[in-house]
Design a protein around this nucleic acid. Structure first.
Lengths: 133, 133
DNA sequence: GCTTGACCTTCCAGTGACAGGAAGCCTTAT
DNA sequence: ATAAGGCTTCCTGTCACTGGAAGGTCAAGC
């Protein structure tokens, strides 16, 4: 099948699939007219990639996960290690965002938000007198 | 003062300050030798930018926040609106990350992580039989 | 046969907010 | 005089695509 059909089945835009080929994650065949030809196995691989990306794995992690998936003698410990490392990064990001959220929501609560110029948000950014209470 | 000194006081690397000048957030003077010369007001502005960036505001938001800060007749409502919009984006990001975290931590828990090849993480990515339980 | 429209191809540029590094000038100290 | 360090600009790379231009291909309808 052609790229658009493959994309529809795997839930990915054609552009993304071309990119995945460019970085070597999939290797579809080529028709005599130069069109990419996707087999079932290619579509399956694309679905795998789509789900891994949806879980936030980087392209490089996806590459490793795919190779582990195709390696019948893999150790599940290798997969788990990658997932755990990624989970740690997710936790870090969440923590950083929550810190921003806490600070900012406090400031927003303090700002009356009317036509007057007084604004604790700007005051905090300007570092007037002290760090956030 | 020169760029490094200004960076030290504002808590920003020189590279970042040059970038901020490039995008028009600061306009330091120039010495006869071509070196940037930072006034107290420039350092203050850089500190403002550093704190705004630490709260996750984009460069464009920073630009608006700075102009509001310098506009004595601003309405605090304008500042609050920007902050609230940003807060909403932060919430969205946190929610997306937590969804990943939930799914992935469940899978990681299910994976025994030893030398055997059976791996529920890969099975999920491969979409074997069903979506995540 | 011709046209039209929907595909497909490659290649290039842009995204956000910098960071790294090269090549070269300036300043200060020894 | 020279060496070290700071400064300058300019170019490239990051990450994972996305948009768009220019052009080839194909199937359907007239």
């Amino acid at each position: 099948m052609n790229i658009k059909e493959a994309g529809a089945r795997a839930g990915l835009p054609a552009k993304t699939i071309r990119y995945y080929e460019e970085v070597g994650l999939v290797r579809p065949l080529r028709d005599t007219n130069g069109y990419r030809v996707f087999r079932q196995s290619d579509v399956h691989k694309l679905g795998f990639l789509g789900r891994a990306r949806a879980l936030g794995f980087t392209i490089e992690d996806c590459r490793i996960l795919l190779s582990l998936y195709e390696d019948q003698s893999r150790a599940s410990a290798d997969v788990k290690a990658i997932a755990q490392r990624h989970l740690a990064q997710i936790s870090d990001k969440i923590a950083a965002l929550q810190t921003m959220q806490d600070t900012l929501s406090h400031l927003v609560t303090c700002c009356h938000g009317d036509a007057r110029p007084d604004c604790p948000i700007l005051a905090d950014l300007a570092d007037l007198d002290s760090p956030p209470s």
